[in-house]
Simulated assay, not measured.
Amino acid sequence: MNSLGDKDKMSYVLWTLLSLISYVGGLIIVIKVTPKLQTRSFDEGLFMGWAILDIVGALLAFGAVFITLAVFNGAFAIRVLDFLLLIGILIIAARLAYQSLSSRALAGSVPVSRVLVGGYGIFLMLASFFCITQLFVTK
């Protein structure tokens, strides 16, 4: 056995595990923080802090998809895994956008902030859909 090959395999497993942890952590951040944005006015400093944290959560989730794709050079099994991860992002973003843009008013929510949060959810849905289409485009 080649010890260098074993180290490379171990680093692939480590990158994959770190990516999956990043994905789960990013989605948890997005799920927990996005509803908090609706209760703040968009010009408050706390709204900006929560929005930054929400964007970091989305970056962690999308970053996990791209790291696994880059580490394994776009192997078909990894593309399927990334497809499933992107479907998870798409479902969560659709749910968050629907909840913020639904006609029933939430108690204590700011209408402009609800629209901004809904737009953010739609943006995440579109980004996820774009990434899904780019996964299986042949070069």
Rank of each mutant, 00 (worst) to 15 (best):
P111G: 08
V56E: 03
M48C: 07
L20N: 01
G45D: 14
L59G: 12
A64D: 00
S22V: 02
C131V: 04
A93L: 04
G108M: 02
A61F: 05
L20M: 08
F136C: 10
A64K: 00
I28R: 12
T138A: 12
L90D: 02
I67P: 02
S113M: 11
L85W: 01
S113P: 11
L60H: 04
G88K: 00
S41E: 11
T68F: 00
F83C: 08
L18M: 10
G121K: 09
D54H: 05
R79M: 03
V71C: 05
G119S: 10
F72G: 00
I78H: 02
Y120I: 03
W15M: 15
F130K: 14
L84H: 01
L126Y: 08
G57Y: 01
I92S: 07
N2S: 13
L27Y: 09
G5W: 10
M48L: 14
A105R: 14
G121W: 04
Y12R: 15
L90A: 07
Y120Q: 12
L20G: 00
A64Y: 00
F129H: 09
Q99A: 06
L17K: 10
K9R: 15
I31Y: 14
L4K: 15
D54L: 02
D6A: 14
T16G: 03
I29R: 06
A93Y: 04
A127Q: 08
A127R: 11
W15L: 13
V137G: 07
R104N: 11
K36I: 01
A75W: 05
L20K: 04
K7R: 15
G108I: 01
I29C: 05
S128M: 01
L18K: 06
V117N: 07
